[in-house]
């Protein structure tokens, strides 16, 4: 048996200790895997409001004898709702994805076919936005932008309902 010198033994021990310490540190350290999680989807209430608003706007465009101001208001409402949705990264991501196949069903309610249906649709959207303006979570980081806009659109739609009769 070859005799191991004291110096060699100390050196090997030092190497082994170093390896053990390194392995221990490696096991003990949490490894953070950076995974790109998609942002949460935009608030469903806003998406639904935009779909209902698009239905109302289409109803205005098909109706006859309406004051031009109502259609202009509806276009401004659409832009405002879209601007609110743009605040949410999940909406921006969804918009950047490829468009659904042609003929895919749309999520909004049907376009009002007559004046009575139009009044009902405007009333329903007014109530929907009013409720959201009152109940939008104050903890949402965009609540100070969202709630006043929804309240203003609800107020505008209330006046539309009055004009429509």
């Amino acid at each position: 048996m070859a005799e191991i010198s004291r110096r060699a033994l100390l050196g090997r021990s030092a190497v082994l200790l170093g390896l053990a310490a390194g392995a221990g540190a490696g096991f003990a350290r949490h490894v953070h895997h950076r995974v790109a999680l998609p942002p949460p989807p935009p608030p469903a209430a806003l998406v639904q409001a935009l779909a209902a608003q698009q239905s109302v706007r289409a109803g205005y465009e098909h109706a006859s004898g309406l004051p031009a101001g109502l259609i202009a208001d509806a276009q401004a409402h659409r832009q405002a709702l879209r601007a609110l949705l743009e605040l949410y990264p999940g909406w921006r991501l969804a918009q950047a994805e490829p468009a659904p196949a042609a003929g895919a069903p749309t999520a909004g309610p049907p376009v009002p076919a007559n004046r009575q249906q139009l009044v009902s649709a405007v009333s329903a959207l007014t109530d929907q936005l009013r409720h959201q303006a009152e109940a939008w979570p104050a903890t949402d980081p965009h609540a100070v932008e969202v709630a006043p806009v929804l309240a203003s659109i609800a107020a505008s739609l209330q006046t539309h309902r009055m004009v429509l009769g």
């Binding site: 309240a151 006046t159 009055m162 004009v163």
Partner: peptide, 27 residues
């Protein structure tokens, strides 16, 4: 806000019948 917007409609219809409403009351 909704009440004030509704209150304005009566008078706005008299003073500007072509545009009796506004898109964003209160702004």
């Amino acid at each position: 806000l909704i009440g004030a917007a509704a209150g304005a409609v009566y008078w706005r219809r008299l003073s500007q019948p072509d545009a009796p409403t506004v898109a964003f009351p209160g702004t």
